[in-house]
Computed example of a mutant assay.
Amino acid sequence: MTGDNGIRTETPWTGMVPVDDTALAVTDTGGTGTPVVYLNGQFATQGYWRRTIAELGPQWRHITYDERARGRRSETSSDYSFEAAVRDVTAVLDARGVERALVVGWSYGAYVASHWTARNPERAIGAVMVDGAQPYDWMDEAMAQRIRVMFRRVALLGPLLRPTGLLPRMNAEQMAQSNIELGLLGGEKELGAVLDSITVPTRYVLASGTSFGSKGDEQEVIRAGMDAVYERNENIRLFAKVPSNHGAILRKDFRAVAGAVREVAALDGRGR
């Protein structure tokens, strides 16, 4: 099979995709199945999706990549903004000759998936949001300061973790600013409007309990806010609320994520 831009897709491909002032490490399993592009957590890598991919199997075309300065190979950039992350989805799909794809995002990646899906309904088969993209007004100056302190501490582990790909090649302020920007974009008014505009099948897989960086019942309060979203937009539904927490969901509840992918694909009215 040959894509619209002449790229052959029968066999797996791994390489670098140039975009703006950087290049992203991309893996494409190839094949003729429905394309699924996976969007990582804020500082996570494409390896987090391996269980979901194995569960879905080779009948799907799986496309994963590491965002700017993430993982071991994606290059650094002068732009780590949220808008750059949204642009990168299109850049990767264009580079791989994919016209339409099902988008799956976890945590930060779910926010990116929501914006990309809302802006590109003609290219989105549908979306699966994994414990992310939940509208809530949680960012204020006190929270921003808490985030800056947290990432100054995280950055101390840089010499140990960066060579393994477990920490991005970003400084403490860049990591903190990325998180603060996400908090502002994730407010009820801002993100709510984005979700309300989604016109393709979208399913949520939500975790339970707390995880790194949260206190008390913060995350459960945020998840409860999704009920209003489901009421306003018939395209968006909860697929499953699973036992694992935010950080463990792709490791322990990958079958639920795969189930949501299958359900969204089955609802595609335009075919592959």
Rank of each mutant, 00 (worst) to 15 (best):
R169N: 10
R8E: 12
M175F: 06
P18R: 15
A260P: 05
E173I: 14
T27Y: 11
W49N: 03
G216E: 08
P135W: 01
R255F: 11
E99R: 13
L93T: 04
E188G: 09
L238F: 00
G271F: 10
S74P: 04
E55W: 04
Q174P: 05
A207S: 08
I249D: 00
E220L: 15
V149T: 11
D268P: 13
G105D: 01
Y230K: 01
Q145W: 13
G213K: 09
G109T: 00
S244K: 03
L182I: 05
G209N: 08
E173R: 07
V98M: 07
G209R: 07
G6E: 14
L238I: 02
F239R: 06
I147N: 00
F43C: 04
V86N: 02
E141C: 12
W49D: 04
N5A: 06
T32M: 15
E10G: 11
N179T: 11
E188C: 14
P168A: 15
D227W: 13
R146M: 14
M150N: 12
E188L: 01
G187F: 00
Q177D: 03
V257P: 01
R251K: 08
S178M: 07
N5T: 12
G209E: 08
T9E: 14
E75L: 10
N235Y: 00
F254T: 05
A193F: 03
L160I: 10
A54F: 13
E173L: 08
D227F: 14
Y111A: 01
G213V: 09
G216A: 15
A91D: 07
E234C: 10
G57S: 14
Q134D: 09
Q177E: 05
I249M: 03
K252A: 12
R262L: 08
G33Q: 09
E83F: 00
R148Q: 07
V112D: 01
V130S: 02
W138F: 09
P18L: 13
P163Y: 09
A142N: 09
P58H: 13
T164E: 13
G213S: 09
R262H: 14
D217R: 06
Y38E: 01
Y108A: 00
S244I: 05
D28C: 10
A142T: 05
L167F: 01
G30C: 06
L56T: 12
S78K: 13
N5Y: 04
M226L: 11
V26K: 02
T90C: 14
R96S: 14
K215P: 07
V89D: 02
P18A: 12
A124M: 11
F43N: 04
E83K: 04
F239S: 05
G47V: 04
R255D: 13
F151V: 01
Q174N: 07
E99I: 14
E190M: 06
A118M: 10
Y65W: 15
N245T: 04
E181N: 06
R96Y: 07
G97I: 05
T202N: 02
S214C: 00
I125Y: 11
G165K: 04
L156E: 13
S197K: 11
V194R: 01
T117N: 02
T164N: 08
I222R: 05
G57I: 15
G33A: 06
Y204T: 04
R61E: 03
G41D: 09
V264Q: 07
E10R: 15
E141N: 10
I63F: 05
Q59N: 12
A23H: 15
L191G: 01
N235S: 09
R232A: 12
T14I: 13
R51P: 15
